[in-house]
Design a protein around this nucleic acid. Structure first.
Lengths: 326, 326
DNA sequence: CTGAAAGCGCTTACAG
DNA sequence: CTGAAAGCGCTTACAG
């Protein structure tokens, strides 16, 4: 690797001068600048990022914490974060935490040792101390941590109301809600929205916890069909659990959407791959990831944040699982 | 941040001694060791990874190149790579290249400036010069680059034969193959396997290019049904394109598996989320990602590689889209 | 406008 | 067994 010394020698100046033209900082004569630039080009010199890091105590690295990138909600988010970060010259380190505090702590330690500039946290753990006690910028994505941490979420409650009212408008008389895990902010908010819509319209309903995974949801829905044969609408807490409900309907010989209408939540690409295609509440996933990255980079650059709360509207996406009666 | 100097002062030794106990290298008296260890603990000292990097010219960073993490094949691979890397103290940087050479080159440059230790390349671009000309260790995952680069793939051809013969065994008389993009090694190999099986059994068939995306596959399959109404079996080049075929069958009112049997390739979790669930050729995705990471780390540690070619067997996973006649 | 020097936080020959 | 010193490749006061 060629270093700043090689460039200085070739250009017949000191390393200080090379550094000045590199950073466009301080006075440099036209002539010196020209010969340095030539030397840089002819040697194909690229400054060593590690040496810069050591001096500046920054690295251009940001950590992205997700529970598990295999969970289909997170890749789209990760893509958005990475795009936004890369466009500003940052690099993103992927951290799968399985929502385990111990893993989060390990990642935080390793990242701090590398002078990571910031963290985007899209995972939920019970304890938040280890996050609050870190001294690097953090933004919370798709979850709430604390009022002191900038937060990017979607309108989970309003979206859940839209979903439920859509089912009601489609004529559903007995609606089941497959709710996500208790204690997970988004799942709780969706539940609250469901409850409110149901009460506003006095519709028969039942709520069951179905995690965020397909297996659990499939079993839960099957049990539901057995216990309450007259269920004709399902609001699933996520698109993945909606897919589970569709599988259960198939197994129990209920036609979708004819016998039972189903709507999910998230708007991940899975929904369009299902047959029939899944109606859902679309979160602007890409925009959310992008926003989180932008906020983090503003914090890193010590800019004032316009707000600590960024809530994105959801939109009702009507596809095949909730429409008509075919 | 507390530094090695602080520790040295607290322990009443020189920084050299502290460094020695940190690295368990060189002679240190029991007594010095004890007082250094105490100082480290009481100050909660963590060595600065950047300073170490600068000296050693390594960083513990590996780059993972994928076309797009949103494509559902890659998250499982990424998870495996990240798990294996983290367990050995490496950190993985996510690089979405969109299979564009220009993006790959940019990432390579940035990573080299950070003293990245290695690259796992799971993307295909036409040119490979920029990869060959890099001087850091590289392993190719799910693609072939060159004989000089360790490669981890699955038995695409054999898997395709299994898929095709399975459809034949299920009684299919006219089989369509939705092949992946030409020039992509895995897609080409699957096509070759299909051809071979078809010829061995003299079955009517048709091949059409359907990319690796759902939209294209859906349209292609619809056209196929229109043109060749007697198609009763589809071997899709990936699980995603199989999902597209299922959507097309739905639109064209062909029951799956009764009227047309479908099998995919990959074994991503999507297959289990579909209704009916998707028969497929399962690649050991996690093991492949893990193996790639392990090979890369061996190269980084200058260990001899047992082989440059690591081919994993696929397994036929019979689920609902290809069985019975219901 | 420019260079010598100190410093970022480590590691490792080299003397002793 | 231990410390002073040089060096990894940069950047930036400080003098001139």
């Amino acid at each position: 690797m060629t270093t700043i010394k090689d460039v200085a020698k070739q250009a017949n100046v000191s390393v200080a001068t090379v550094s000045r033209v590199l950073n466009q900082k301080g006075y440099v004569s036209k002539q010196a600048e020209r010969s340095v630039k030539n030397a840089i080009k002819s040697l194909n010199y690229k400054p060593n990022a590690v040496a810069r890091s050591l001096y500046h105590k920054t690295s251009g690295i940001i950590g992205l914490f997700v529970p598990d990138i295999s969970n289909p909600f997170f890749p789209e988010l990760a893509r958005a974060v990475e795009d936004a970060a890369t466009s500003e010259g940052f690099t993103v380190v992927l951290c799968n935490t399985d929502s385990k505090q111990e893993k989060e702590e390990k990642y935080i330690q390793v990242l701090q040792q590398k002078y990571a500039d910031g963290l985007i946290i899209a995972t939920g753990t019970d304890s938040i101390e280890h996050i609050l006690s870190t001294n690097i910028p953090v933004v919370a994505l798709d979850r709430y941590i604390s009022d002191h941490i900038p937060t990017v979420v979607s309108s989970n409650k309003a979206g859940a109301i839209d979903a439920t009212e859509h089912l009601i408008a489609q004529g559903c008389q007995f609606i089941a809600h497959l709710r996500g895990p208790k204690g997970v902010t988004s799942a709780d908010d969706r539940y609250t929205g469901f409850k409110q819509a149901i009460e506003d319209h006095s519709i028969a309903h039942v709520v069951v916890e179905a995690g965020f995974e397909i297996g659990q949801s499939e079993v839960a829905t099957r049990n539901l069909f057995e216990k309450y044969p007259s269920i004709d609408g399902i609001f699933a807490g996520s698109d993945v659990t909606a897919a589970g409900a569709m599988r259960a309907a198939y197994q129990c010989k209920r036609a979708v959407p004819k016998d039972v209408k189903i709507i999910g939540f998230d708007g991940i690409s899975l929904g369009e791959m299902l047959t029939p295609s899944l109606s859902t509440i679309q979160q602007p996933i890409y925009e959310m990831g992008q926003q989180a990255a932008k906020l983090l980079m503003m914090m890193i650059e010590k800019k004032e944040l316009p707000s600590y709360w960024h809530e994105f509207s959801t939109t009702l996406k009507i596809r095949e699982t909730s429409t008509g009666s075919e």
